[in-house]
Design a protein around this nucleic acid. Structure first.
Lengths: 330, 330
DNA sequence: TTGTAGGCGTTATCAC
DNA sequence: GTGATAACGCCTACAA
């Protein structure tokens, strides 16, 4: 392994000069700096992160936590994060926290063992809370995606789910639908609650009866949408539209409708939420609410990076715009 | 920050005893070990990974490289890796290598800077080669997914893409199709080459003419499948079936067929490759080749973990079974 | 069974 | 501008 000592020897200087030269710090003659950099390149030198972290107490790592890294909803967020992180010189450390965040100690491990400089936590599970206190206490900057917490030290990136759901439902109402079902997400999640609320508000505003029996809860996955739609079709044959809390479930719903021999949107109109990549390729292409997922990821890293550089202070609350993408399913 | 010194002080022993106790090494009285562990828990102690890595020269980290972490093909692989890694106490370090592996220095960084104990590299881009030499030289164990290299020190996990493609095409032929197009993947990738070869072999064996003009190349993404299918429909209206090199492109193809007002499988039969989660929810549900992606991920980590423990030797070549999943698109 | 001492590669402090 | 020197937290001979 090539170390700064080796370079120092070759350059005829001391290790400390090498360190300063390589880190672009002041107090090194330009010519020696160039010499050292050349030698470092020649010797194929790469710094030892462990040694550096040990003394600087910084890791240039950002921890990223989410419920399930394999969910398609997250991929663009991750990509956005990656993009900024790699440019800013940060390494991303992912963790799936399938269970309750509090129960696990992944957070402790990330903070204490791995010494991450900051964290991004994606998700709105209302049981995952309290970890903010730990983070605040340790003074580790963090960004919450899909949450909107009013706190002068907490950074949040979110979209107005209630308004988005309202917009989607309103769209169906304006198309003339009167009996509109809702396939909700897991109501332990704030986003599911908000989307349900938006749906209900639109109904109420239009004087349509709010019927609990028209709301079905799933867990954001295809299969749940499929089952929920089957239930709707059999229990409410007069239902002409459905607003689904996310696209994955909407795919399942489309499937159930097709299998029942019905047509979309003629017999049943469907509106989803998220605008996943495949939503343009369903049959028919899905009308849905677009979330700026890539932007969410990018922004989260940009915020964190600025805070870590001291160019920005904690307490950023960013509400990103959504958009109703009208395709052919409604 | 709580260190082993703090624990040592509280327990009235020396730091080395604490280290041995916490790492379950021999030479510590059972009662003191228990005492130390209790104190460590009370003090909320977590070891400093940087310090440990510096002295042990191991990181308990596995580097994972793939072309694009946001591709749905990878998600189940990642999940499988995660599952085993978290149990075995390894942390996964991801890297997108959008470009040519050689050009970037991510590999060097992973190996030298981060000191990963092992690597998993997913992908079959034939330009990404030569890195094996570096890895072999550094004696870092690694597993290649989607590659089949015969080398006594290289570990590979793959499926027989040629045979799978042959199976898919044969299936179409047996259904009576005589003019079958192929939407190939990016032919810089071995898997795309193999799938094309399997397709051609099936045609040849059945005495069907091999027509280059029936093969279209895409880059494994929806949009390319869509465009390719449009081209096929306009250039070969007598074509009755298409074998697509991956599901993402098959989604695009289905879309193009629908838009042309044709029915699947009545007018055009479609067979995909991968069996992504959504393939059961397309319209009609996609007939495709299932790759055991979750297994691939799991196996890769199991192999690496065993090799790192010295329970297994390098040179493992694992060919996993594929499966033709017949749904309704063909 | 326990303690001491040295060192892993790097950065930071303070002389020169 | 440069060079000793002392950490950072942990592990591991080796000594007691």
């Amino acid at each position: 392994m090539v170390t700064i000592k080796d370079i120092a020897r070759r350059a005829g200087v001391s290790p400390s000069v090498v360190s300063r030269a390589l880190n672009n710090k002041y107090g090194v003659k330009e010519s020696t700096r160039q010499l050292i950099k050349t030698i470092a390149r020649e010797m194929n030198y790469y710094p030892n992160a462990a040694a550096r972290r040990l003394v600087t107490r910084k890791s240039d790592m950002i921890g990223v936590m989410m419920a399930d890294i394999s969910e398609p909803f997250y991929t663009q967020i991750i990509k956005g994060m990656e993009y900024v992180a790699s440019q800013a010189g940060y390494t991303l450390l992912f963790s799936n926290s399938y269970d309750n965040l509090k129960k696990t100690n992944v957070l402790q491990k990330m903070i204490i063992t791995e010494n991450v400089d900051g964290l991004v936590i994606v998700g709105s599970n209302r049981q995952d809370t309290g970890f903010t206190d730990l983070l605040l206490e340790k003074k580790i900057p963090f960004v919450l995606i899909e949450r909107n917490i009013q706190h002068e030290k907490v950074n949040c990136i979110w979209i107005d789910n209630k308004k988005a759901a309202y917009t989607a439902t309103k769209f169906l109402i304006e198309k003339g639908h009167r009996k509109i079902a809702h396939i909700a997400g897991n109501l332990k999640n704030q986003v599911a609650i908000d989307r349900l609320a938006g749906y209900e508000e639109a109904l109420k505003e239009s004087g349509l009866p709010k019927a609990d029996c028209l709301v079905f809860e799933g867990n954001f996955v295809c299969a749940d949408g499929y089952r929920a739609m089957q239930a709707i079709l059999s229990m409410h044959p007069d239902c002409t539209a459905v607003f689904v809390a996310n696209d994955s479930m909407a795919y399942g719903a489309l499937q159930a409708i097709h299998e029942a021999g019905l047509a979309v949107p003629k017999d049943i109109a469907v509106v989803g939420f998220d605008d996943l990549e495949f939503s343009a390729f369903t049959n028919p292409p899905l009308t849905t609410i677009r979330q700026p997922r890539y932007q969410m990821g990018k922004k989260s890293m940009q915020i964190l990076s600025k805070i870590l550089q001291g160019k920005e202070k904690n307490g950023i609350n960013l509400c990103l715009p959504f958009e109703l993408v009208v395709r052919n399913s409604a």
